Computed example of a mutant assay.
Amino acid sequence: MSNLAKNELETQCQEKPCSAIERVIKPRDKDLGEFTVRRSIPTTEQKQIGPWVFFDHMGPAVFQPGQGVNVRPHPHINLATVTYLFAGEILHRDSLGSEQAIRPGDINLMVAGKGIVHSERERRELTDSMHQLHGLQLWLALPEKDEEIDPAFYHYPSADIPELEVDGVTVKVMMGSAYGKTSPVKTFAKTIYLEARMDHEQSLKLPNTEERGLYVVEGEVEIDGVTIEEHSMAILSGKQDLTVTAIKSSRVALVGGEHLGKRYIEWNFVSSRKERIEQAKQDWKDGKYPKVPGDELEFIPLPE
């Protein structure tokens, strides 16, 4: 947590006990040249939230013709990636031969397991015109028994993701179960991922689970008397039946689930074992990973 966010939380907690919130993370903007990314986890203070080990907020960004997303092939192990867009499009390709355009409302789940390579680019028609990008990219740790499963790719179109009204609030159950709905998106451990759009002064009772984090994509909300600003992540305590209230029109994402135990992260590799990451690094340097069909000429070298 930044010193400013920490001081703000401590000031509010002097007036009312903050038993609902363990900390507030205010990620720094990371300028990637053509768009901005904000990483809430992992941080020094918060490595994981349930099975989630990585949470990036991309954009919103507007690209001029000739600019856009252009991520060369790179590897992953022992995790699953989850990509969800509010606006724009990304072209996913992987070493299984998958080729899928990710569009707003869709969920793409790529299970790395024992190893996969993928790229994230754009269709030429998109890059040639002015376009935008806004979305979330998340990583899930796999349970130890599933870390070395065969890699797989799953695509869930927007129409398959459950959406409902909860006390007037529009909620999407992206992964897991909540409010009597269950998402079709595959999970490997107890996992929750929700999105909610809230008008001014609307409230939403949050589902209970072992660990939870609430990220404010747009707007500003309040939990247990504490204000959570736009682009901030509130790490919630085990206090049950918490309610979030919108101070202004807001979009929030709730992630959480069961704690899976310590995970090591280095570059694009996640594992419960340090030695497995070292092996993955060497295998990438030695060219032992499969190529991405249709994207064989380039790759991202292992960082020094």
Score class of each variant (00 low, 15 high):
E122R: 00
E120G: 03
E147S: 10
A152F: 10
E148N: 15
P162H: 10
E165L: 15
G135W: 05
I161Q: 10
V166K: 13
R121H: 02
L142E: 04
L140F: 13
H131T: 01
R123Y: 03
G115M: 07
Y156W: 07
M130Q: 14
F153T: 02
H118R: 02
K145W: 10
V117T: 12
L136W: 08
A141T: 07
E147N: 09
Y154I: 08
D128E: 14
S129K: 15
D160G: 01
E147F: 07
P151H: 06
S119F: 00
G135T: 03
V166N: 09
H131R: 02
V166G: 08
V117P: 04
L164R: 12
I116G: 05
D128K: 14
L164E: 12
Y154Q: 08
E120N: 03
T127G: 03
P143H: 11
I116W: 04
G135Y: 05
R124H: 02
D128Q: 13
L136G: 07
H155I: 03
D128A: 14
S158K: 14
P143Y: 09
D146A: 14
H134E: 13
Q137Y: 03
T127D: 00
I149L: 13
D128C: 02
H118N: 02
E165V: 09
I116S: 04
Q137C: 09
T127Q: 12
E120M: 05
R121C: 00
H134Y: 13
V117H: 02
D128H: 09
G115K: 03
R124M: 01
S158T: 11
I149H: 11
L133T: 03
D150W: 02
E125S: 14
L133Y: 02
H131P: 01
P151F: 07
D160I: 04
Q132K: 13
D150G: 10
D146G: 07
M130A: 14
V166S: 09
E148V: 12
Y154P: 05
R123W: 00
R121P: 00
A141Q: 06
H134V: 00
G135A: 06
